[in-house]
């Protein structure tokens, strides 16, 4: 033990490049290089903004999911929760526009409702997991089915559509933007930065990692374990609400297939980004990279006729498995 190694934490942190840390970034860069080689339009302004805007919904949800998974939890219900919240929002706005006309106020009320509904849905998941002690996987499997069936019922098996007047008034929230960036991209970026700061530099983020790492140790260290876990689900619900607010103006409709498999894409993005599925360690920037990797793969397949776009799922599957294999502790098993 040398005095140098004790005093110089900076050097210790910048130690050898660890593939497990930068692996996702390397994969993203490789993917971009392949894309540029296969199609010169790949890095064109319109393609890049298109990819980013489409990945924003999953991305916003995945940021919330990063906290849930880091704290040792899981939420399978977010996809159908998004569909259900979108359905509620559309119905409420249509109903309000009857009396209030196609006004901005109606849209604002719809947004407030969507955020509130997401928050409430997250709270229900969280309270049942923390107070009633139901396994997160089982509980959210249940609420996933409940929300999916509720949206199907509300839409009567078909589609709920926003009135055309409201729809055109609301659409700039998806299609508009400033400085050449559309709103979903801006919101995704801001939330990503905020999420990264919260995860890395606040007591809440540190507590999430401690709970996921060993709940008993966290409890014995006077961390409010149940409160923090509940907060992660509430935050995830809120991020679903935000994603819905950005998503509804895109198509102006919701149906039984809205948000299908979003939960798995969000979880996959979190894991590809280097967060541990069993909890204890999470990073939001990794999740963002994971989201980008997944959407670039499908974009690449659509742009090139090299591989059929029908194989999208297969390639994403291989990437997910590779990511986990590469991140596994490579040291000897005890």
């Amino acid at each position: 033990m040398s005095a140098e190694s004790i005093s110089n934490t900076g050097a210790a942190r910048a130690r050898k490049v660890d593939l497990r840390v930068i692996g996702p970034l390397v994969a993203l860069v490789v993917l971009i290089l392949i894309g540029v080689m296969l199609n010169p339009n790949f890095l064109s302004y319109s393609n890049v903004t298109n990819v980013l805007a489409r990945s924003a919904f999953i991305g916003i949800i995945a940021i919330g999911m990063t906290f849930v998974i880091t704290a040792g939890g899981l939420d399978l219900s977010v996809g159908s929760m998004a569909a259900f919240v979108a359905g509620l929002m559309i119905m409420a706005m249509n109903w309000l526009s009857v009396s209030m006309g196609d006004s901005v106020v109606v849209i604002l009320l719809g947004i407030v409702l969507a955020l509130g509904a997401g928050l409430a849905a997250g709270f229900i998941n969280g309270i049942l997991i923390t107070r009633a002690g139901i396994e997160a996987f089982i509980l959210t499997l249940g609420t996933m089915g409940i929300y999916r069936s509720l949206i199907t019922w509300l839409a009567d098996g078909g589609t709920l559509s926003l009135g055309s007047g409201l729809s055109s008034l609301y659409s700039p929230v998806y299609y508009g933007g400033i400085l050449g960036l559309s709103w979903p991209i801006i919101v995704f970026a801001l939330l990503a930065i905020l999420g990264e700061i919260v995860m890395r530099h606040t007591a809440f983020g540190r507590h999430c990692a401690a709970i996921g790492s060993n709940e008993k140790v966290a409890r014995y260290s006077s961390v409010h374990v149940q409160r923090v876990k509940l907060a992660t689900y509430v935050l995830l619900g809120l991020s679903v609400g935000i994603a819905v607010v950005m998503y509804v103006p895109r198509l102006g409709s919701a149906s039984a297939t809205t948000g299908l498999l979003w939960e798995l894409e969000a979880i996959a993005a979190v894991i590809i980004g280097g967060t541990l599925l069993k909890g204890g360690f999470g990073r939001v920037w990794g999740t963002v990279v994971g989201v980008l990797i997944l959407s670039l793969i499908s974009n690449l397949l659509n742009l090139t006729d090299f591989v059929s776009p029908y194989l999208n799922g297969a390639i994403q599957g291989v990437v997910i498995i590779l990511a986990v294999v590469l991140q596994r502790n490579s040291g000897p098993a005890r």
């Binding site: 990692a209 401690a210 790492s213 060993n214 008993k216 140790v217 409890r219 014995y220 204890g280 360690f281």
Partner: peptide, 9 residues
């Protein structure tokens, strides 16, 4: 090890 310290942190 079970309740005192986070061993991997």
């Amino acid at each position: 090890k079970g309740a005192g310290l986070l061993l991997e942190k």
